[in-house]
């Protein structure tokens, strides 16, 4: 029995086991602290849906062998650009959201193409180079946001130069997905549209991975040598995966923003990639292997932890922002764990 337990824990991985247990314990604690558990659960679902696509963006990169896509901010920037264009065009509601997607996807494909070219030239160091591509593009776009010729009052500062730090979506497509077919059961509000969209994206990626191209990407990630011997163009597979990942990053931030109600410009996207990486790792993925179930579990657990831990921690520990510190430790701890497991050691 204990042998079986041990092997189960080993299969899930110790940190994952700890985190899932922690989430359950925190939920139980929340119940005993007389916090509104259904409400917390509702929020957990919302957070899952709004972050889900960003986490999903990790899947193609991992499977194609480029590793954890720390360059996600690149896709995020593309998404924000598309989102702002949609606002500039005065689009509102679901149309506004769709136009935002239409605008951002081509931008993301172009950006992803060049990013993919770069990653094909730096094989072996994709993660480090990707991180700094993300950092560089975010800091470059800080200048961009200051000088871009957007006209809309919702985007520009009313006085002074440049674009606002946060751009409210209230008049545009705030919560268009969240509110779609939303219903409440046992006090738990389910953001149907948001989850539906997230699951559809998951299904899309799932099906894509079972196409001929998807199969080629998976083979490339598993073994470059095997793929070459099977007539697969390794660089092309990696390229397609990178473009897909970047495009998903762009869509991901749009979903995030419509749920959050704001676009955050300037340095806000800088560290967003790390949270997405941590989530998928928590779900059970590694630097070489990822499944859709890892995305679903990971984003639910990670976001749940951040969300539920906050009120619980505040009750137990009134001072300071313990849950934020916990987030930092868990987020980077799990990435560090994955890196040491991925090895490279002799």
């Amino acid at each position: 029995m204990s042998e079986k337990l041990k092997s189960t824990i080993k299969n899930i991985g110790i940190p994952r086991f700890v985190i899932v247990t922690m989430l359950i314990v925190i939920y139980i604690a929340a119940y005993f602290l007389k916090l509104n558990v259904p409400r917390l659960l509702s929020d957990n679902l919302v957070r899952m849906g709004m972050n889900g696509v960003l986490v999903l963006a990790m899947v193609p990169g991992i499977l194609s062998g480029t590793g954890l896509n720390f360059g996600l901010p690149l896709g995020i920037i593309c998404g924000i650009l598309g989102g702002l264009l949609s606002i500039e065009l005065q689009m509102t509601g679901i149309v506004g959201f769709l136009v935002a997607m239409m605008c951002s996807i081509p931008i993301a494909i172009i950006a992803g193409y060049f990013y993919g070219k770069l990653l094909n030239r730096v094989k072996g160091s994709e993660m480090m180079v990707g991180t700094y591509v993300g950092f560089s593009i975010v800091s470059l776009m800080c200048i961009g946001w200051l000088v871009m010729p957007f006209k809309s009052d919702a985007i520009r500062w009313p006085i002074g130069e440049g674009l606002r730090t946060t751009i409210a979506l209230t008049d545009f497509y705030d919560k268009v997905l969240n509110d779609f077919l939303q219903f409440t059961i046992f006090g738990v509000t389910v953001p149907t549209g948001l989850l539906l969209f997230f699951f559809m994206m998951c299904l899309f990626v799932f099906l894509f991975l079972r196409t001929k191209t998807g199969m080629a990407i998976r083979a490339t990630g598993s073994s470059n040598k095997f793929s070459k011997a099977s007539g697969i163009d390794v660089d092309k597979s990696r390229m397609i995966a990178t473009v897909l990942s970047t495009a998903l990053g762009a869509i991901g931030i749009l979903v995030y923003a419509q749920s959050y109600g704001f676009f955050q410009l300037y340095t806000a996207p800088l560290m967003m990639g790390f949270a997405a990486v941590a989530a998928i790792l928590l779900g059970g993925a590694s630097a070489h292997n990822a499944k859709i179930t890892h995305v679903l579990l990971g984003v639910f657990v990670f976001q749940g932890l951040l969300l539920v831990a906050l009120p619980v921690a505040n009750v137990i520990f009134p001072q300071g922002n313990l849950s934020e510190v916990m987030r930092v430790i868990v987020q980077y701890g799990i990435i560090l764990y994955a890196l040491t497991k991925a090895g490279g050691g002799q």
Partner: peptide
């Protein structure tokens, strides 16, 4: 994490 020292030291 030989070969990935930089990203590891950053994390």
């Amino acid at each position: 994490t030989i070969g990935q020292e930089m990203i590891t030291s950053m994390i």
